[in-house]
Nucleic acid binder design. Structure first.
Length: 903
DNA sequence: AGGGATACGTAC
DNA sequence: GACGTACGTATCCCTC
């Protein structure tokens, strides 16, 4: 009997430095500005290894600076690699210091790459009877895998590479990996391989011959003459490549596997180190492990008392506790991100700091055991959920509302949403996920979904997560959310945003939830007919295009289209994209004058777009139970305060072309109802007029003039009735252009006039409406001073661009300041109108439902007998949503479908 | 095979 | 480089 030796973990440092550096989208810096994301990521990887495996033997292996043996064999080795980015270079010594402070042994040998050192250490370990785990995601290291002694593991993706998994991934056994790479080459390391041999061919060869040596010595046995020729010609390259990819085992490593023992960490120095880097999050972990009472008291939160509730007794205990609470944080665990399709898996609740419970109701894992059924759980919770008290808080609690509603519970008393709060504090931030919010506002790290359910291919549904982990995860989310509430509320208060939250965004949550839950009816048969028509049109256009081009090609491929237009047909390049000549609409419009193919491509594209994006897609999204389409309105996406719609996006349904309108004909009301559409007329220009106080602009709106005609008349100095359609078109373009901060260049392009005329037109516009110019300058200046643009109801968007020393960036900031003030104010107003209308509908007990919001338009499903009342009510509430110095005007239409409602 | 980047196009 | 805010689809490329 032999004594069982501890496993040696060998960590491939470089691969994790690079991965951590590139994986983190957000740039992380220490207080002094040093970039730190690679240090952070590396630490997380190390912690995962340490926590998951508690290794008794471990060693971090670095790549040495300077050339290695492989460069001596082949000067071009890794020649295509860019040098290490400067921002990463400065982090390498920090990582090394951190590893040292953590007490983890490490090694670096001049002239030998980390791979070789790992191989040498692995050999020593195996000889000593010690199992080895190579910690790396690199495929080059697959060649070292020898079960059962040596396996490879990638902690970040939680992937284990055994002989079997390597074979599944690469199609060859680990010992054949080097031959595989020798044949196919590796572009990232600039390994040539055999020209014309890729992964598939290399796999087939090795399957047939077993090894590269056999391939080369029995080259005459290769069936295909072409391949035989490639191999014969590529022999030298293959042998050289094999030398390069083969990991050597002879690196002069003095370190013995038994010496790779973790020493005690230098806690004091680590604390300072983490503090200097601003890693507050790691400090509490450190404290816990170090057992340092003083440090722990300062940084560590008391143990959370999570309860797993699986029986009636536990349930009533929790209910009793919550009954005394003021605030209840709710986090539902479900089977889907889509609230309309999600089934309940569990309910996490937190009602007090460090007091949370998880009630599993749909777990299917082996240990799921007894659970209280969903219906029973919800019935028990119903009085709490449907009452005003306790106050409900959550992270994107609209999701909870919709899921609960589908399960027969109508959530009441919504008091706070951490996602929405985070959004109001900084709408320019692209993420308002709990994980990020917690990091920013609590300075903590959070258990991630991948920590309990795995990641990548290994990820399992939450229902299969063992209860013990599920409790931990769900309760930590509920509790984190609970603790965020006062912090975020305070920050909103400080920023003067609390009123916006409480009077606008919070009341909007149930309104949006009701809209999503209600959905809109679609006439699928009508779309199917339309699909056939479009199909026919596409076929015809395709035939014509292929004929003109002199052969078939994929019109939908910009690359192939490029070859045809600018290669075969020699048409002039109008505009370039990053990768080559552009083929977009504006280019094709210009080319139409030169060649008939252009307009056919435009027609083809337009038909394909309609068919693929709308006509064929919408029917697939009809909900099996409701028979309707349920979009999701996101309240925390846009930088300006607008809503966005997704899954599907119902805010970009076509309207401008005839075929497009046909799609709106398929949006229909329920029997006995009509669709009512109410849209704000020129809301952004009216807001512009209000803010600028420009007399002429205000007068135009006050008199109910046709604003574009009026603008044309004033700019061109003619009476309104003499304005030609062309003059009106130009004025309209300018009116919109001004809102977006369009310059002479953009206007010239849009109007197809020269830049001088465009500039003259803009000058004339500003001369006509002098208040506009003044206001633009003023809003830019105020925004710069404040650091953010502000809307009518106090919404902010931070604009650091305004202080940039780069003129382009600064001008961009100026356009954003103007546009955000206008667009954001329009968003404020329609949101308030939605709240008011929803309240009135409920107050009056109407059966009318608000279905859609499209930025300046609301769509309702109205029972015929309510139409008169609802028309009046909607128009009145929208137009009087907030007093401005110009009237707000709402146009309304109704009918048997959305197209008709726009009549 | 599938994720990410790119190009394009729809809405307001 | 030049006009703001979104989302979705198809293609292409690569797999740190």
């Amino acid at each position: 009997m032999t004594e069982k030796k501890p496993t040696l973990y060998l960590i491939d440092a470089s691969s994790y430095m690079y991965r951590a550096f590139y994986a983190m989208r957000q740039r992380l810096t220490a207080p002094d500005g040093t970039p730190t994301q690679a240090v952070y990521g590396f630490h997380q990887m190390l912690q995962k290894v340490l926590k998951d495996k508690r290794p008794e033997r471990i060693c971090v292996v670095y790549d040495p600076p300077g050339p290695t043996l492989r460069h001596a064999i082949y000067p071009d080795y890794k020649a295509t690699r860019e040098r290490m980015p400067e921002d990463l270079v400065v982090q390498v010594p920090l990582i090394k210091r951190m590893v040292d402070l953590l007490g983890i042994p490490s090694v670096e040998i001049t002239g030998y790459e980390a791979d070789d050192v790992i191989a040498a250490l692995a050999r020593k370990a195996v000889e000593a009877g010690m199992p080895v785990v190579i910690v790396s995601g690199d495929k080059d290291l697959h060649q070292l895998v020898r079960e059962p002694h040596v396996i490879q593991w990638d902690p970040q993706r939680d992937e284990v590479f055994t002989g079997e998994t390597v074979e599944r991934k690469l199609g060859v056994r680990p010992e054949q990996v080097r031959d595989l790479l020798a044949l196919m080459g590796d572009s990232s390391d600039n390994i040539p391989g055999v020209a014309g041999v890729g992964l598939k061919t290399a796999q087939n060869l090795l399957r047939q011959f077993g090894s590269l040596d056999q391939v080369l010595s029995r080259v005459e046995d290769i069936q295909s003459p072409a391949l035989r020729k490639k191999i014969e010609e590529g022999k030298e390259a293959a042998l050289l490549s094999r030398d390069l990819v083969t990991v050597r085992e002879d690196a002069p490593v003095a370190l013995e596997p038994d010496q790779c023992v973790v020493r005690p960490a230098d806690t004091k120095a680590l604390v300072e180190f983490f503090q200097s880097l601003g890693f507050r999050r790691f400090l509490d972990e450190l404290a816990r492990e170090a057992g340092d009472q003083a440090l722990a008291a300062a940084t560590e939160a008391p143990e959370r008392r999570d309860r797993l509730v699986t029986d009636e007794k536990g349930l009533s205990l929790v209910l009793a506790r919550i009954a005394e609470a003021d605030v209840l944080s709710i986090d539902l665990e479900t089977t889907s991100q889509d609230a309309m399709r999600a089934d309940l898996v569990g309910v996490a609740l937190c009602w007090k700091d460090h007091e949370a419970a998880y009630i599993p109701v749909g777990h299917t894992g082996e240990d799921a055991g007894q659970q209280i059924p969903p219906a029973r759980t919800l019935d028990a919770l119903r009085p709490l959920l449907e009452g005003d008290r306790p106050k409900k808080v959550g992270q994107n609690i609209k999701y909870e509302w919709v899921v609960l509603k589908r399960h027969g519970v109508e959530l009441q008393g919504i008091d706070f949403d951490t996602m929405v709060a985070s959004y109001l504090l900084d709408p320019g931030n692209p993420s308002h996920r709990l994980e990020r919010i917690v990091a920013e506002h609590l300075g903590e790290s959070k258990l991630r979904y991948s920590d309990v359910a795995g990641s990548g291919r290994n990820q399992i549904p939450f229902a299969q997560v063992p209860l013990e982990k599920a409790v931990d995860y769900a309760c930590s989310d509920a509790e984190t959310t609970y603790r965020l509430v006062p912090v975020l509320r305070e920050k909103l208060q400080e920023a003067g945003l609390l009123d916006l939250m409480e009077s606008l965004e919070r009341p909007l949550i149930p309104v949006l939830a009701r809209m999503e839950h209600k959905g809109i009816r679609i006439d699928a048969a009508r779309l199917q007919e339309l699909s056939k028509t479009l199909e026919e049109g596409l076929r015809k256009e395709e035939e014509v295009i292929h004929q003109i081009a002199g052969g078939p090609f994929n019109i939908q491929s910009p690359i192939q289209l490029r070859d045809v237009l600018f290669g075969k047909l020699q048409l002039p390049v109008i505009k370039k994209t990053k990768t080559g000549p552009s083929t977009d609409m504006s280019v094709l419009e210009e080319l139409a004058a030169l060649h008939p193919i252009a307009e056919h491509i435009v027609a083809y594209r337009s038909l394909a777009k309609l068919k693929n994006t709308y006509v064929d897609t919408l029917p697939k999204l009809i909900h099996p139970e409701t028979g309707r389409i349920h979009t999701s309105y996101n309240q925390a996406v846009t930088a300006t305060g607008r809503l966005s719609s997704s899954d599907p996006n119902l805010q970009n349904i076509p309207i401008r072309t005839e075929e497009g309108r046909r799609i709106r004909e398929a949006f229909v009301p329920e029997e006995g109802c009509v669709l009512l559409a109410a849209d704000y007329s020129q809301i952004e220009l009216r807001i512009f007029a209000h803010y600028s106080g420009d007399e002429r602009l205000v007068a135009a709106f006050s008199e109910g003039a046709d604003i574009h005609r009026r603008t044309a008349a004033e700019m061109f100095g003619v009476p309104p009735h003499e304005v030609t359609p062309e003059m009106r078109r130009q004025a309209k373009t300018i009116n919109f252009g001004i809102i977006y901060g369009m310059g002479p260049y953009g206007l010239a392009k849009q109007l197809r006039i020269n830049q001088a005329s465009a500039k003259a037109a803009i000058d004339r516009y500003f001369a006509t409406y002098q208040g506009v110019k003044r206001w633009i300058e003023q809003v830019v200046e105020e925004s710069r001073k404040r650091g953010y643009a502000e809307t009518l109801l106090g919404r902010r968007r931070y604009l650091p661009e305004l202080k940039s020393r780069n003129r382009n960036v600064r001008q961009q900031g100026e356009r954003l300041a103007v546009n955000t003030t206008i667009q954001g104010t329009a968003a404020d107003l329609i949101k308030k109108a939605m709240i008011d209308i929803d309240a009135a509908i409920r107050q009056e007990g109407l059966r009318t439902a608000m279905l859609l919001q499209v930025h300046d338009e609301l769509v309702f499903e109205v029972p015929e007998d309510e139409l008169d009342r609802v028309r009046t009510l909607v128009k009145d509430l929208m137009e009087n949503v907030h007093p401005l110095s110009v009237p707000l005007v709402v146009d309304m239409g109704w009918g048997a479908n959305w197209a008709e409602a726009h009549g």
